Simulated assay, not measured.
Amino acid sequence: MTETSFNVLFLCTGNSARSILAESILNREGAGKFRAYSAGSHPKGGIDPTVLALLKKTNHPTEALRSKSWDEFTGADAPTMDFVFTVCDNAAGEVCPIWPGQPMTAHWGVPDPAGFVGSEAEKAAFCGEVMRLLRTRISIFAALPIASLDRLSLQRRLKEIGKVALESPEARDSGVL
């Protein structure tokens, strides 16, 4: 890991909703300290329209977003990841590639906005809830004193973040909510 900037990869099966949200949120919330990326084991090839509309409505960066395979991050010319987070249960259960640099990993599973069935208004509201949960976890992560934590302590904290829910005491105590 570098002292000034950390590379973070968010993984999901389709790379069309959850991992895209996480990438955009961290690139805004952690600008200067983090560079976020997203990918999928079986990318859908496009971003969910409700997710894209929500990101634009909330002034999150969208220009560089695209659905892509995690294979893009395994080659010699790929950026070395410091952290890799799975945000869907399918990706967490799959055999992931070997990431160069042995990044720290954790599972931060959230519900899938792309798979939500309901009216457009219901889907938009559901997507907003998923975004708030990801933003809560990402804000806690971005506030960690990474440089002062030993690897074992940092790994424990990363796993704990994946258990934080919107109304949990951890989220309230973090000062995020």
Rank of each mutant, 00 (worst) to 15 (best):
residue 2 T to C: 06
residue 3 E to L: 14
residue 5 S to A: 03
residue 5 S to W: 03
residue 7 N to A: 10
residue 7 N to T: 09
residue 7 N to E: 08
residue 10 F to S: 05
residue 10 F to I: 01
residue 11 L to Q: 05
residue 12 C to I: 00
residue 12 C to P: 00
residue 12 C to L: 08
residue 13 T to H: 15
residue 13 T to R: 15
residue 13 T to V: 14
residue 14 G to Y: 01
residue 15 N to M: 13
residue 16 S to V: 01
residue 17 A to Y: 02
residue 18 R to E: 10
residue 18 R to K: 03
residue 20 I to W: 01
residue 20 I to L: 02
residue 22 A to P: 00
residue 22 A to S: 07
residue 23 E to L: 07
residue 23 E to V: 05
residue 25 I to V: 13
residue 25 I to A: 11
residue 25 I to F: 10
residue 25 I to L: 15
residue 26 L to A: 08
residue 26 L to H: 03
residue 27 N to V: 07
residue 27 N to G: 13
residue 27 N to E: 07
residue 30 G to P: 00
residue 30 G to Q: 10
residue 31 A to K: 11
residue 31 A to V: 09
residue 33 K to D: 13
residue 33 K to P: 00
residue 34 F to E: 08
residue 37 Y to C: 13
residue 38 S to H: 00
residue 39 A to K: 05
residue 39 A to V: 06
residue 44 K to R: 04
residue 45 G to N: 06
residue 45 G to Q: 06
residue 46 G to V: 04
residue 48 D to N: 15
residue 48 D to L: 02
residue 48 D to H: 12
residue 55 L to W: 06
residue 55 L to S: 09
residue 59 N to E: 05
residue 60 H to Y: 15
residue 66 R to T: 15
residue 67 S to G: 11
residue 68 K to C: 11
residue 69 S to K: 02
residue 72 E to D: 13
residue 73 F to M: 09
residue 74 T to K: 15
residue 74 T to P: 04
residue 76 A to Q: 12
residue 78 A to I: 08
residue 78 A to C: 07
residue 79 P to L: 07
residue 81 M to C: 09
residue 83 F to W: 04
residue 87 V to P: 06
residue 89 D to K: 14
residue 90 N to M: 14
residue 91 A to S: 15
residue 93 G to M: 03
residue 93 G to V: 04
residue 94 E to N: 14
residue 95 V to I: 10
residue 97 P to T: 09
residue 98 I to H: 06
residue 99 W to M: 13
residue 100 P to V: 04
residue 102 Q to S: 14
residue 107 H to Q: 11
residue 107 H to T: 08
residue 108 W to R: 09
residue 110 V to G: 04
residue 113 P to C: 05
residue 115 G to C: 10
residue 116 F to C: 06
residue 117 V to E: 06
residue 118 G to N: 08
residue 118 G to H: 04
residue 120 E to P: 00
residue 121 A to E: 13
residue 122 E to L: 12
residue 124 A to R: 10
residue 127 C to M: 11
residue 127 C to E: 04
residue 129 E to V: 13
residue 131 M to H: 11
residue 132 R to Q: 04
residue 133 L to A: 13
residue 134 L to F: 04
residue 137 R to P: 13
residue 138 I to F: 07
residue 138 I to A: 10
residue 139 S to K: 15
residue 140 I to Q: 07
residue 141 F to A: 07
residue 147 A to W: 03
residue 148 S to T: 09
residue 148 S to H: 09
residue 148 S to G: 00
residue 148 S to E: 14
residue 151 R to M: 12
residue 152 L to Q: 09
residue 154 L to R: 05
residue 155 Q to R: 15
residue 156 R to Y: 02
residue 157 R to E: 15
residue 157 R to P: 03
residue 158 L to G: 02
residue 160 E to I: 01
residue 160 E to K: 00
residue 164 V to T: 09
residue 165 A to L: 12
residue 167 E to H: 07
residue 167 E to V: 02
residue 169 P to G: 10
residue 171 A to C: 10
residue 171 A to K: 02
residue 173 D to H: 15
residue 173 D to L: 14
residue 174 S to Y: 02
residue 177 L to Q: 05
